[in-house]
Structures are given as structure tokens and as C-alpha cells.
């Protein structure tokens, strides 16, 4: 599990002003959880994420990954293996130009035997549905495909957790959907804990738990369904609910018995159909 205790993060701007990016964060994420983190731009989401696998180290407070403190240097390799990270821009995450080589890169550094390395690369690529592209040049792939390769590069390390910092924000709708269902699969079939930062409110529905950040603090830790019912709170955080939530809430206000916590489109249609049928004489 990932355990964050009393984490503060300050940094100095070029004008020598101090900015506090994180303020007193306490958070525990258990193995196998699927947690979304949302919040306005500048609320501290990415800074928090970077503390989860030791890209940033706490000056105040502690981060533990399965009980090991990220601040202690001897834990470094364990932490990098346990918690992988995938970023927003698919172009900035590669070290080589050929798909297979890039996935194998980290394993080579760990001196994993050749046969095992080969097998793990194959499994990672199959898992993201990109094995047939193993000899392709990364340059020739689309944004969505590159993001899948970046994910394969993370899962080849057999992590317990994967942190995704807005992995879909540069992708077109179809690629976004593919990445979302991939995250779901990694969570459900491989039991990898997922920490998912996104600005797409419809995608939050994938998670079982949502953390809302504002001004460096965690202001809410809740289920997606309950979160979206409280539109006033969301809007005060510069966020919004998905379009269907607004619709269901409106109908509710007008006396219709529709559950406003619904996030699945088919369920929503069924709920509407039931309300319409209720009128049948």
C-alpha cells in the first residue's frame, strides 16, 4: 500500500516567493484500488502523484510504499519497481526508437536474464494489445498507440501500483476509450492498483474512489456517484459533472424519480425508460 503522512511541499518561484503546492496531505491507498484524483489546474494533483514513486521526495512528512520510506535511498529501486508512472505527453516518455527495445530498456538495466526479459516484454505488449508492433519505430505510432507502449513499459516492471497523470488528455475520443478500458482491465484482471489523474469527468466513473484536490489540500474522498450529486461543491472546485448528471439532477428537481448518481449511459437510459413506463396506464 501507499501511505502518505503529513506531506507538505513548498517551492520557490523565480521571484523568491514561496508557493505551497501541498499542505498536510494524509492519504492511504490500498493494493488493487482504483482511485481517481481530480482538481482544478494548479491544485497539486501532479505534485502529489510525483511523490508516490519517489520522483519527488518529501521535505516535510513521509511517503511509504509497502512500509518503505521513499526518502531512504536504499529503498529507491524497490519503490520504482512497485509504483510505475505514465504521463500526459506520449512523446516524452521514450528512451529508444523501437518499441521492443524501449520496453526492454529498464529490464536490461536490472540485468534480468535474456529469456525472462523476452518473455516479460512479450507479455507486457500483449497485455496492451500492441505485440504486433514490437518491431515498429515509436515515431510511426499514433498518440494512443504511444500511450499504450508507455503503459507496457510500466507494466513490464510488474508494479503493484500505476500512477497515470492525465494519460488521455492529448488523445482523440477513440484512443481515450481504449486507454480507459485498458486501465480497467489492468485493475480487474491483474489487480494493479490504479491512481488516475484526469480532467475528463466522465472518466472518473471508472474509479471506485475519487479524491478531490483544491489549493494543495485533499478536500474530499468519496465515491464517484456521490461526488457528482453535489454540483455546487464541484463547481466551487472549478470542476463539473458529466452532462448526464446535470440532466438527471434537473429531472429530479422537476419531481421525477431518477437516480442522479448514475454514470453509465445504458443505466441512465434504463432509468429514463422506467420513469416513462411508470406512466403507462
Amino acid at each position: 500500500m501507499i501511505k502518505i503522512e503529513n506531506l507538505d511541499c513548498m517551492y520557490k518561484t523565480s521571484n523568491n516567493q514561496m508557493v505551497q503546492a501541498l499542505k498536510g496531505i494524509n492519504l492511504t491507498i490500498n493494493p488493487g484500488e482504483f482511485v481517481a484524483i481530480i482538481g482544478a489546474n494548479g491544485s497539486g494533483k501532479s505534485t502529489l502523484a510525483k511523490h508516490m514513486n519517489g520522483i519527488m521526495l518529501p521535505k516535510e512528512g513521509d511517503v511509504f510504499v509497502f512500509g518503505k520510506n521513499t526518502k531512504e535511498e536504499q529503498n529507491n529501486l524497490f519503490i520504482k519497481k512497485s509504483v510505475g508512472m505514465v504521463f500526459q505527453n506520449p512523446d516524452n516518455q521514450f528512451v529508444t526508437s523501437v518499441v521492443e527495445e524501449d520496453i526492454a530498456f529498464a529490464l536490461e538495466n536490472l540485468e534480468i536474464p535474456f529469456d525472462e526479459m523476452h518473455e516479460r516484454v512479450r507479455m507486457a505488449l500483449e497485455c496492451v494489445g500492441m505485440y504486433e508492433y514490437k518491431d515498429a519505430s515509436i515515431e510511426s505510432l499514433s498518440g494512443g498507440q504511444k500511450q499504450k507502449i508507455a503503459i507496457a513499459g510500466a507494466i513490464v516492471m510488474q508494479p503493484k501500483f500505476l500512477v497515470f497523470d492525465e494519460p488521455t488528455s492529448m488523445l482523440d475520443p477513440q484512443s481515450r476509450e481504449e486507454i480507459c478500458s485498458l486501465l480497467k482491465r489492468l485493475n480487474e484482471t491483474m489487480n494493479i492498483g490504479i491512481i488516475f489523474i484526469t480532467q475528463f469527468m466522465e472518466e472518473v466513473a471508472l474509479a471506485k474512489r475519487v479524491i478531490v484536490m483544491n489549493d494543495g489540500k485533499i478536500v474530499k474522498d468519496i465515491s464517484p456517484g456521490c461526488l457528482f450529486e453535489d454540483i455546487d461543491f464541484l463547481e466551487s472546485m472549478k470542476l463539473k459533472a458529466p452532462q448526464i448528471t446535470y440532466f438527471c439532477l434537473e429531472l429530479n428537481k422537476l419531481g421525477e424519480n431518477i437516480n442522479p448518481g448514475i454514470l453509465d449511459l445504458k443505466e441512465c437510459a434504463d432509468e429514463l425508460a422506467a420513469a416513462l413506463k411508470g406512466n403507462k396506464l
Binding site: 475520443p173 452532462q243 449511459l265 425508460a273
Partner: peptide
């Protein structure tokens, strides 16, 4: 063509 339509439209298409 790999494109989407607004979410609320999909609900009414389901209906």
C-alpha cells in the same frame, strides 16, 4: 472515423 457524439445524445439513442 473514430469520433464521438455528445454524451446526452447517446442516452437518447439508447432510449
Amino acid at each position: 472515423m473514430g469520433l464521438d457524439v455528445p454524451q446526452i445524445l447517446k442516452v437518447f439513442l439508447e432510449l
